[in-house]
Amino acid sequence: MAYFKSMKQDFSTFLPQDDWREQWEPYLDLPLRKVLGPLFSLLLAPVPLLKWRAVSAFGVTVSRLAEQDLESARVVMRRLMWNLNEESGAIGWGAPESMGESLARCSRLAVEFNRILISYAQEPASGDGNYLDHEPLRRGVYWGMARLAEKQPDLVQQGRSTFLELLKDEDAEKRALGLWGLGSVGVGAGQENTSAVRSLIEDKNVVVLYRNDQLREYLVSDLAREALVKIES
């Protein structure tokens, strides 16, 4: 327990710093499942940047764990999935983001778990599915999907319809996440889809997104232009 508390305190101190990656490297030489314990708790951190850096560190660590022991990394993914299951009694804060970050950093895990991540955001046509009714958790799924699409767009093609739906949402952050995702996976067939992206070029709403290890403000209009450049190229 003292080991856990000590690492959590250390992580809380340096993860928000710009050089957190350099400070993280020595921990990758430790038993990685013990390192992940404090990170799980920091996914609930009230300080936004600390929470998001914990997500990044989680992905780095799971990717390294998969190189050493793929089955152990699968167990971590299943724990995240369990945390998103209503039967677990947990709320699952940070779980979809951590899953998306881990899959973005590990192609082996991405091939196995990409459909599960996407299923959390899509209501099944029939029967039971994994759709998350809790909207704040789905927002984390949208982020995880967009993050994975940055690295492995082919694995997120079935999420295109979700990104397109987000463009119509009243919530500016959801529109921004939809644009981020579509910039990687493309809009698919239909001029109306490209037009949906173009319609947001004048959207001057400001959102806060975590991208490239940084938590910063973006104009939705800038994200629309960024998406169009990627789509049209």
Rank of each mutant, 00 (worst) to 15 (best):
S102G: 04
F113S: 02
G127D: 09
L137W: 02
R139M: 08
R78P: 05
Q68F: 06
A121C: 06
G159M: 09
E165H: 09
A73M: 03
Y131V: 06
I118A: 15
P153N: 11
A66Y: 07
Q68V: 10
T61I: 14
A104I: 06
E87P: 00
N130L: 14
G127S: 13
W82V: 11
S102I: 11
D128W: 07
A66E: 05
R160V: 07
L148I: 10
S102P: 03
F113Q: 04
A66C: 05
R138S: 01
S88A: 10
H134C: 00
G144V: 08
E67Y: 01
F163P: 08
V60G: 00
K151Y: 07
G144A: 09
S63Y: 00
A110N: 08
I116C: 06
Y142C: 06
G94N: 08
N83D: 14
M81L: 13
Y142E: 05
A73V: 08
A66F: 09
G94Y: 05
L117R: 01
R78N: 15
L65S: 08
Y142T: 06
Y142I: 08
D154M: 11
L164M: 13
R115C: 04
I116T: 14
R115H: 13
A66K: 07
A149E: 10
R105H: 06
V156K: 01
P153I: 14
A104N: 06
A110H: 10
R64A: 15
G89N: 10
V111Q: 15
S126T: 09
T61L: 10
N83V: 03
E86R: 10
G129Q: 11
R79A: 09
G129I: 12
P96L: 10
Q122F: 04
V141E: 05
G59T: 08
V76L: 06
G92F: 03
A146R: 09
Q68W: 04
S126E: 14
E86C: 00
E165S: 14
Y120Q: 03
V62N: 00
V75E: 13
R147V: 12
I91T: 11
Y120C: 04
G100W: 03
L117N: 05
L109W: 02
Y142P: 02
G159I: 11
M99E: 07
L164Y: 13
N114A: 15
R115G: 15
T162P: 04
A121F: 12
R138K: 01
E123L: 13
V111F: 03
R64P: 01
E123H: 12
G127V: 09
E135S: 03
L84R: 02
M81S: 12
R74D: 12
Q122D: 06
E135C: 00
L137P: 01
K151P: 03
Q158D: 14
G100F: 04
A125I: 13
